[in-house]
């Protein structure tokens, strides 16, 4: 069972990496979107799932990555070279925010993250160097779909591998202890703030790189696109629908949400119903199966065995 699952993941990764050889641009774009979603969901899951710190402010990191890439590319940097820098800035920012915010527990932390992300969005649409609410355009001839595709797929694989490694490591066990009972974790010597900061920084860096790639692919960014609250929302939604705190959950969630998005957008009558679908899924999952589809799968598995 374990080996079969591993082979399946390997096959999926190989398929995604060799897809440009035999697929058209349309489906490749869908795969790019899926990889983007997988990165966001799996990276969020490091803090939100493993450590149980639900942040509704992850669009901030996408925006930081995207703006770093565009602003430096406009100064004649190679766009791909800007990616690690965006990751670094996002990680530093995550620590600056995390230091005070991680003193807050549970929902108070969540509310604080909404406040921070919204403050950044408003600021980015007002100050001058970000181009205000009209946004920024990448310099011409920086567009290279194939390079971007491989980078995005590669980053998705790396993110999932990191998540799998974290879950198994002492780091992951510390995060699990924090999620289950933060006082008990502190009592046995887990420095909860330090571990939360590390998970926050790691996931912020991954999300920021994805944000940079997003900017290169779409060639244009604005506060309304990369700092959008709905982006934060779908980032949270994917792991929750799939199964929070697991490796496969965020990937399933990303698959479900990005498929839904493509399908809904292609049916005119349903184009305006995605909030309804998102909200409905969120309510149903939280009320009836807080472990998401992975939890549902396990439940069915137990029924079949019994």
């Amino acid at each position: 069972m374990k080996i079969a699952a591993r082979l399946l993941w390997l096959a999926a990764a190989i398929f995604a990496l060799t897809a440009p050889l035999f697929l058209e641009r349309g489906p490749l774009n869908d795969l790019w979107n899926l990889a983007f979603a997988v990165i966001l969901a799996s990276a969020w899951n490091l803090l939100g799932g493993f450590a149980g710190q639900v942040s509704l402010g992850y669009s901030a990191f996408i925006g930081i990555g995207a703006y770093t890439t565009v602003l430096l590319s406009l100064k004649d940097w190679n766009p791909f070279v800007t990616l690690p820098l965006g990751a670094l800035i996002a990680a530093i920012f995550s620590v600056i925010i995390g230091l005070p915010a991680f003193r807050l527990r549970g929902p108070y932390f969540t509310i604080a993250t909404i406040g921070v992300a919204e403050a950044i969005r408003v600021t980015a649409s007002t100050v001058e160097f970000t181009g205000g609410s009209s946004g920024l355009r990448m310099p011409a001839d920086t567009f290279d779909f194939n390079a971007n595709y491989f980078a995005m797929i590669g980053l998705a694989v790396v993110t999932v591998v990191i998540a799998a490694w974290v879950k198994r490591s002492a780091f992951g066990r510390a995060l699990a202890a924090i999620r289950q009972d933060i006082e008990a974790a502190e009592a046995v010597g887990v420095n909860s703030t330090r571990f939360k900061l590390a998970a926050h920084a790691l996931s912020a860096a991954l999300v920021a790189i994805a944000g940079g790639l997003y900017a290169i692919n779409f060639q244009y960014i604005s506060p309304a696109s990369v700092f959008d609250f709905r982006l934060s929302l779908s980032i949270v939604l994917m792991p929750i629908i799939g199964g929070v705190g697991t490796i496969a959950g965020p990937i399933f969630g990303a698959l479900i949400v990005s498929t839904l998005q493509i399908k809904l957008l292609s049916i005119p009558a349903l184009r305006d119903s995605f909030l309804f679908v998102y909200g409905g899924l969120l309510i149903v999952v939280m009320l009836f199966e807080p472990q998401g589809f992975v939890g549902l799968g396990r439940r069915i598995g137990r029924l079949v065995h019994a």
Binding site: P107, T110, D272, G279, G280
Partner: peptide, 13 residues
């Protein structure tokens, strides 16, 4: 928090 967030989205839609 998340359930009521879902309610908000449904109302918005």
């Amino acid at each position: 928090l998340l359930v009521l967030f879902g309610v908000w989205l449904v109302l918005q839609n």
